[in-house]
Amino acid sequence: MEIFSQLIFNSIIAGAVYALIALGFNLIYGATKFLNLAHGVMTAIGGYTVFYFTKTLDWNIYLAVIIGILFAGLIGFSLDKFVYFPLRKRKASNMVLLVASFGAFTAIQAIIAILFNSRFQTLSQNTSAQKSFEIFGGVITQTQLIILASAALIMTGLVLLLHKTRFGKAIKAISDDEEVAKIVGINTNKIIGYVFFIGSAIAGFAGILVGFDTGIEPTMGLDLLFKGVIASIVGGIGNLYGGVLGAFLLGFVENFGIWKISGDWKDAIAFALLIVFLIFRPRGIMNK
């Protein structure tokens, strides 16, 4: 019973982190229709910004988190403005954009490794002093509760943004037909820039949460990117709700999959899930 409860908690927490990555990834994919691989490295940007401000400069942790989120958003926005937008303007194919995003991913990851070395670090001040709660025999930490609460808050906020604001309607219009959106006077480039900001800021926040829960390292973006992409494809790429559903499904399959075997199999199980979906339901759960 204890293990079962613990696996459920672990699955939900992993699902919440993957959902945050998938939300930003799907938001950007929906508007641009290309796989922005640089999305993964935004997690490292968020995590290392907080690390720099709290551990090196000894700033207030809450202020550092806000700066980390905004900085990740700003890098995403700048990538669009200085790399993707000029390419889109020249009518570059999605393959070119994908390669450019992979280049940006590698370059940023290398810069982080140079600036901060490649060691595994944690953002928590004192891990042993962290509060934890026992529920149905399973243990959940204070940080993990914060992860769950903030993931729920961001998901709700994003849904409200998309459905209740004019900005959200414009994003949906661009997602449906960017060319027609331009013709009817929607400032598509500006809106796509904001989409990159929002999506990257969410990924940065996910990186910060992971940093507090487990830790950060320059290559953390790759693993989280894979999980976000798998969640998106399983749920239905470009579909925000699908991405969240896929993220939690991935979290459960991954954690229950290693119930009786080594945790090293986690990634293999995640990719097995992806392959199963690519063969039997390539459009994902939510896309018709």
């Binding site: 004019r166 309607k169 219009a173 959106a181």
Partner: peptide, 9 residues
């Protein structure tokens, strides 16, 4: 309604 979106993003 999306056409009537404010030009100021």
């Amino acid at each position: 309604l999306v056409i009537l979106t404010k030009r100021n993003v």
